[in-house]
Amino acid sequence: MPSDPAPPHPRPSRTANAKGQAFKQERALRTRRLLLDAAAQAFADKGFPGVTILDIAELADMTKGAVYFHFANKEALALALADEFYERLDDLIDTARRTTNTPLDTVRTILTRTATAFRDDTTIQAGARLQVERTYINAALPTPYTAFTTTLTDLLTQAHTTGQLRPDCNPQALAHTLTSAFFGAQHISWILHNRTDLPQRTHDILNTTLNPNQP
């Protein structure tokens, strides 16, 4: 007498599949974050030309294969970090706009918080160094400084319109001056003091350029 056929294997439920897929995506995102953090540290410390994929893999405690699974090459890591650098600057600007009362206060807050980020945030430090070393990177990084200058110009124009700046002040020229002074100060502070004094340098710039009591 033939034996009863074996029961069919139960099909995994859609819920189980969704949970498994979500877990894989979450794990992939965590791995990608670890690799970006490791690359940021490496680029900030050694610069793009001095860093290898192996350096990044070892900092992340992973294999080179894991790096290449997520990023095609070193340039792809640099591009991802450059994008994140500008996203973080945009977040700082948006927060300053929401939490200040006047355009001039917003300008001061943007520059002081950006100075703190340059001092403390490794991704910001890596992004800044990648921009300086852009000629060594075979990829199209965003153009530096222009968006930052445009933001300051818009805010200073509003400040001028509302009487926060002297009538003879040129908001566009002042925005260019502030951008040059700030990014020049961050570079000097980086070389001389590892950016520890950048908030104070920024405070001095703001007091010198935006002092309403000056003739």
Rank of each mutant, 00 (worst) to 15 (best):
163 G>P: 04
144 P>T: 08
171 P>Y: 09
163 G>K: 09
129 R>D: 07
151 T>N: 04
161 T>R: 14
146 T>I: 11
137 I>A: 05
161 T>H: 14
147 A>I: 08
145 Y>P: 01
164 Q>G: 05
173 A>K: 11
129 R>C: 06
146 T>S: 11
138 N>P: 06
132 V>K: 15
128 A>V: 08
141 L>S: 03
154 D>G: 03
156 L>R: 01
174 L>A: 03
156 L>E: 01
148 F>T: 09
153 T>M: 06
151 T>F: 00
178 L>V: 00
166 R>M: 02
154 D>W: 02
153 T>S: 12
137 I>D: 04
144 P>Y: 10
177 T>G: 07
171 P>Q: 12
162 T>G: 00
171 P>F: 11
162 T>W: 05
147 A>C: 04
135 T>R: 11
161 T>N: 06
164 Q>S: 05
150 T>E: 15
139 A>L: 09
151 T>E: 12
164 Q>A: 11
159 A>I: 01
145 Y>M: 10
130 L>I: 06
178 L>F: 06
138 N>I: 08
134 R>T: 13
169 C>D: 09
149 T>N: 12
162 T>P: 01
132 V>M: 15
131 Q>Y: 15
160 H>L: 01
146 T>C: 05
162 T>M: 05
178 L>N: 03
166 R>Q: 10
143 T>M: 08
168 D>S: 13
159 A>W: 00
166 R>S: 11
138 N>T: 10
166 R>P: 00
158 Q>T: 03
171 P>E: 10
139 A>Y: 02
178 L>G: 04
130 L>A: 10
156 L>H: 00
165 L>V: 01
139 A>S: 14
176 H>M: 09
152 L>I: 00
151 T>R: 01
161 T>W: 12
135 T>S: 14
145 Y>A: 06
129 R>N: 11
138 N>R: 13
148 F>L: 11
161 T>F: 14
160 H>D: 01
153 T>Y: 07
167 P>A: 15
157 T>C: 05
134 R>A: 15
162 T>A: 01
131 Q>W: 10
176 H>V: 07
130 L>Y: 01
148 F>H: 13
149 T>W: 03
142 P>I: 06
132 V>G: 14
130 L>E: 04
164 Q>W: 02
162 T>Y: 05
176 H>R: 12
147 A>V: 13
164 Q>H: 08
130 L>K: 05
146 T>F: 09
144 P>C: 08
163 G>R: 04
141 L>Y: 02
171 P>M: 13
175 A>V: 04
127 G>H: 08
145 Y>I: 07
173 A>Q: 12
144 P>A: 08
142 P>C: 05
144 P>H: 07
136 Y>D: 15
145 Y>H: 13
143 T>Y: 07
159 A>C: 01
163 G>F: 08
160 H>A: 07
176 H>N: 11
128 A>Q: 14
140 A>T: 15
158 Q>S: 00
167 P>K: 14
154 D>I: 10
159 A>D: 00
149 T>G: 11
